[in-house]
Measured scan of single mutants.
Amino acid sequence: MLEGKVKWSNSEKGFGFIEVEGQDDVFVHFSAIQGEGFKTLEEGQAVSFEIVEGNRGPQAANVTKEA
């Protein structure tokens, strides 16, 4: 699992980007967020995730919010 911080997200469009130190930003779709209820990410929020190869390149999977 990698750790990063949410660079920005748009809940209306359903995606955002995660900033990882020393690496390119990672695309995240809201379907990759683990948990119940409305899935949102806040700018600056710490997250853990895996990287998978998506249709348009690397993207985050199994995203969990850190406490």
Score class of each variant (00 low, 15 high):
Met1Gly: 07
Met1Val: 13
Met1His: 10
Met1Ser: 09
Met1Arg: 15
Leu2Gln: 08
Glu3Met: 15
Glu3Asn: 15
Glu3Leu: 15
Glu3Cys: 15
Gly4Gln: 00
Gly4Thr: 01
Gly4Ile: 05
Gly4His: 00
Lys5Trp: 10
Val6Leu: 07
Val6Pro: 02
Val6Met: 06
Lys7Pro: 02
Lys7Val: 05
Lys7His: 05
Trp8Glu: 02
Ser9Val: 15
Ser9Gly: 06
Asn10Gln: 05
Asn10Asp: 11
Asn10Arg: 03
Asn10Met: 05
Asn10Ser: 11
Asn10Phe: 07
Ser11Leu: 14
Ser11Gln: 14
Ser11Ala: 14
Glu12Ile: 12
Lys13Cys: 14
Lys13Ser: 07
Gly14Cys: 12
Gly14Arg: 13
Gly14Val: 05
Gly14Leu: 09
Gly14Asp: 03
Phe15Trp: 14
Phe15His: 03
Phe15Arg: 00
Gly16Arg: 00
Gly16Cys: 06
Phe17Thr: 02
Phe17Tyr: 07
Phe17Leu: 04
Ile18Asp: 00
Ile18Val: 04
Ile18Gln: 00
Ile18Trp: 00
Glu19Tyr: 11
Glu19Arg: 11
Glu19Thr: 10
Glu19Pro: 00
Val20Glu: 00
Val20Tyr: 06
Glu21Asn: 10
Glu21Ile: 12
Glu21Pro: 14
Gly22Arg: 03
Gly22Thr: 03
Gln23Ser: 10
Gln23Leu: 12
Asp24Thr: 09
Asp24Tyr: 09
Asp24Gly: 11
Asp25Phe: 04
Val26Leu: 08
Val26Ala: 00
Val26Ile: 11
Phe27Asn: 04
Phe27Asp: 05
Phe27Trp: 06
Phe27Thr: 04
Phe27Ser: 01
Phe27Cys: 10
Val28Asp: 04
Val28His: 03
Val28Phe: 15
His29Cys: 12
His29Asp: 08
His29Ile: 04
Phe30Pro: 06
Phe30Glu: 07
Ser31Trp: 06
Ser31Phe: 05
Ser31Cys: 10
Ala32Val: 08
Ala32His: 07
Ala32Gln: 11
Ile33Pro: 02
Ile33Lys: 00
Ile33Val: 11
Ile33Ser: 03
Gln34His: 09
Gly35Asp: 09
Gly35Trp: 09
Gly35Pro: 04
Glu36Pro: 13
Gly37Cys: 11
Gly37Asp: 10
Phe38His: 13
Lys39Ser: 09
Lys39Arg: 10
Thr40Pro: 05
Thr40Phe: 13
Thr40Lys: 09
Leu41Pro: 01
Leu41Gly: 01
Glu42Arg: 11
Glu43Thr: 14
Glu43Val: 15
Glu43Pro: 15
Glu43Ser: 12
Glu43Ala: 14
Gly44Leu: 01
Gln45Lys: 04
Gln45Phe: 05
Gln45Thr: 11
Gln45Ile: 09
Ala46Ser: 12
Ala46Trp: 15
Ala46Met: 15
Val47Trp: 00
Val47Gly: 01
Ser48Cys: 14
Ser48Phe: 14
Ser48Pro: 00
Ser48Met: 12
Phe49Leu: 05
Phe49Gly: 03
Phe49Ala: 02
Glu50Asp: 09
Glu50Arg: 09
Glu50Phe: 10
Ile51Trp: 05
Ile51Ala: 02
Ile51Arg: 05
Val52Met: 08
Val52Gly: 03
Val52Cys: 11
Glu53Lys: 09
Glu53Met: 15
Glu53Cys: 15
Gly54Leu: 06
Gly54Ser: 09
Gly54Tyr: 05
Asn55His: 14
Arg56His: 11
Arg56Val: 07
Arg56Tyr: 13
Arg56Ala: 08
Arg56Phe: 13
Gly57Asn: 03
Gly57His: 04
Gly57Asp: 02
Pro58Cys: 08
Pro58Ala: 07
Pro58Ile: 09
Gln59Gly: 03
Gln59Tyr: 09
Ala60Val: 02
Ala60Leu: 01
Ala60Met: 01
Ala60Phe: 03
Asn62Ser: 08
Asn62Gly: 05
Val63Ile: 05
Thr64Phe: 12
Thr64Met: 12
Thr64Leu: 11
Lys65Phe: 14
Glu66Pro: 11
Glu66Trp: 11
Glu66Tyr: 14
Glu66Thr: 15
Ala67Pro: 13
Ala67Cys: 12
